[in-house]
Nucleic acid binder design. Structure first.
Lengths: 204, 204
DNA sequence: CATTATACTGTATATATATTCAGTATTAAT
DNA sequence: ATTAATACTGAATATATATACAGTATAATG
């Protein structure tokens, strides 16, 4: 991150305060009013400098299209997206997959997490994971045997217990007698671990 | 807070997701694009309804002037006590029974609730309620058949399904084959309903 | 010394955006 | 039976806003 001048810093602070106060970013004219500039171009040039230095992003042709780039806080907020667990396809954070956002204190489940996954089916019933429950998913590859993982096999997403039997063989175990074990030979089948469950929420 | 319709809820979620994604609120046209409306007035009317009901604030004459109102900030009830489910004794809100307090937005589970109850035992296992889970309890006497209730029988507190068989007979059903039904004759035994479960949280 | 970045004022304008008006249709409440 | 609320389409418009262009001035850089 490059240097910031004192005037640019004033503008950056002004944007942050404005968003905190109103809930949306300022216009060029708003910035002028707050900082006493008499020309909207004063704000414009400062914004372009801040953009060039990577402090903010400006959406072209968009009113109030300023967003603050905060690299140190990835999951700053309290709003976590709820992703639907579709039978096929990966549960990415793309907008079309986001059911809604759920307000929840950070570190709610001890460790941090990235999103909620809406559970479909009863394959983890005996682990107390029921249909429509929300699993708090932490995106990580740090998996231990017995962890409940969110795994993707050929675009099929599933929630199961993880058990590594040998370097090449992984078992994905359901917690329901009616479902059978999935045995995966990593040499022949690609297995991607989206993350693991660190908590659960049920809304009645 | 008044009721919200499903379409209005979609719009509200859309706004939250849009802000999360872009850093600034959507325009009427943005909402139309996200939700498939063909007229900006569709978004406008939904926004006005949400404003009227107190979910959002709209700054007049201001582009993207939408801000989401968070009622849990005004009502300071963010800290909910966790009560241990002791074999004997009532789970009152008395200080000695409070394990710790848990920070959680109000209205987290749709309806409001009063405290968390730490579950002991596996009598509700098949309902997905496991040992050490936290049940969100709403203190109410408004119980329907099939609700999961927190009941007290002679200082014994238990979590079970509620089924009224006749004006005088109530069945408290576990969700575990290894436990048996509790049949209560209200003429001979006193039954007090502490409240019902409106949600569940599991910390892994 | 020419160049570049900073730091402004001031004017102008295409367009992004809120917002009103005119309709249609369905459902719930009084 | 009538009102009110919901849920839209479609068009029109005043204005809010981004953004380019024309200047002036200072300080730092190579």
């Amino acid at each position: 991150m490059k240097d910031i001048t004192s005037q640019q810093n004033k503008v950056l602070n002004c944007i942050q305060v404005y968003i905190k106060k109103t809930g949306f970013p300022p216009t060029r004219a708003d910035i002028c009013r707050e900082l006493g500039f008499k020309s909207p171009n004063s704000a414009e040039t400062h914004l372009r400098a801040l953009e060039k230095k990577g402090f903010i992003a400006i959406e072209s042709g968009t009113s109030r299209g300023i967003s603050i780039i905060n690299p140190e806080i990835e999951h700053d907020g309290n709003d976590y997206p709820i992703i639907g667990l579709v039978a096929a396809g990966s549960p990415t954070l793309a907008a079309e997959n986001v059911e809604k956002v759920f307000n929840c204190p950070q570190g709610f489940f001890g460790s941090n997490f990235d999103y909620f996954l809406r559970v479909r089916g009863l394959s983890m019933k005996d682990a107390g994971i029921m249909e429509d429950d929300l699993i708090a998913v932490k995106k990580t590859q740090d998996i231990k045997n017995g962890d409940i993982v969110i795994a993707r096999i050929d675009d099929e997403v599933t929630v199961k217990y993880f058990h590594r039997h040998s370097p090449k063989i992984v078992h994905l175990q359901p917690a329901n007698e009616e479902f059978s074990n999935i045995e995966i030979d990593l040499e022949h089948t690609e297995l991607f671990i989206e993350g693991k469950s660190v908590g659960l929420i049920r809304e009645n």
